[in-house]
């Protein structure tokens, strides 16, 4: 398949089941809501070493938030429910509770509840106050700038992590420009996050390493400087490869994000140095979710 001179490889992205949650952070203004959200979703690019993958789902208008202030919806993905709960609580406590004027609310409903402010309340040292409003329990924790208001729990849902595609370009600058264009449109798709810095990862990994202590290492088949010394996947004109990784609440969300992202890359086309779109997989043996690029773009 070729779109605007860009070859779409007959391959697929291989993704895995994850557990996810969503939370809403509000603050006095958009600036401080965003600061709290960025802090909460920082150092969360990959479960390999961060314990979770997190990112901003979207900005929320005051009319969409529980307390009528500007807000940001964030999502956190982890390999299991226990790890997810731990990450959520730690991040909420260190990054949102501490952020001026912030409040924290559940962002997704589910039968499975995990603590949001349920245990953070003990920071109140006995001065905390519970309020049940419309059947939901909130905690008011006295803090130095007033009160930190947080919902007691949020929902935990089954989700998918590791959707991805690779942008193969003639130069580093062209690969980056294409990825930026893709991320801009993908960020508008609800229910997905692109957890890497700016949504783009330049150090895609393979499973395993020659060093036995490492469980992931550089994806040498896609490293342009190794074309002459490894079993490369790259043709001679490819000088730079960048990857976009997508975690989503459903397969459909990831499908949609990949489609608009790849389309944005293809719109730049071969004329702008974009040669191929590929994807990372492990031969289909590890992850149950397969995102076939040509099917998505059909």
């Amino acid at each position: 398949m070729i779109i605007n001179g860009v070859t779409i490889d007959a391959t697929f992205a291989e993704a895995f089941p994850m557990k996810a949650t969503r939370a809403i952070i509000t603050a006095h203004n958009e600036k401080w809501a965003l600061i709290a959200a960025q802090a909460m979703t920082g150092f969360a690019t990959s479960v390999i070493a961060c314990g979770c993958e997190a990112g901003i789902d979207r900005m929320l208008d005051p009319s969409e938030t529980p307390d009528g202030r500007p807000g940001v919806a964030v999502m956190i993905f982890a390999m299991g429910g226990k790890g997810l709960a731990k990450q959520l609580e730690t991040r909420a406590g260190q990054c949102v509770l501490t952020s001026p004027t912030s409040a924290l609310f559940a962002g997704i409903d589910s039968d499975i509840k995990i603590p949001l402010g349920k245990n953070l309340r003990y920071f109140g040292d006995g001065f905390q106050i519970a309020k049940v409003i419309n059947g939901k329990r909130y905690w008011r924790i006295p803090v130095m700038d007033g009160e930190f208001l947080t919902e007691a729990t949020t929902g935990q849902v089954s989700a998918i992590g590791g959707g991805n595609f690779l942008v193969l370009a003639q130069s580093q600058e062209q690969a980056l420009t294409a990825c930026e264009a893709a991320i801009e449109v993908m960020q508008k798709v609800p229910g997905v996050i692109m957890p890497f810095p700016g949504g783009v990862v330049r150090s895609g990994s393979k499973v395993g390493s020659k060093y036995t202590t490492l469980n992931a290492s550089t994806n040498d088949a896609f490293c342009p400087t190794l074309k002459g010394m490894t079993k490369t996947e790259l043709s001679p004109e490819i000088e730079s490869v960048m990857e976009i990784v997508i975690d989503g609440l459903t397969k459909e969300d990831i499908d949609k994000a990949m489609r608009v992202g790849i389309q944005a890359v293809c719109d730049l086309g071969a004329a702008n140095g974009i040669k191929r779109i590929s994807a990372g997989n492990y031969g289909g043996k590890l992850g149950p979710f397969h995102f076939h690029l040509q099917e998505i773009m059909a």
Binding site: D67, A103, K131, I133, Y138, R140, G146, E147
Partner: peptide, 13 residues
């Protein structure tokens, strides 16, 4: 005197 964030939620309910 204070501005309390939970009051808008309460009045909304």
């Amino acid at each position: 005197s204070h501005t309390l964030g939970f009051l808008p939620l309460l009045f909304n309910s």
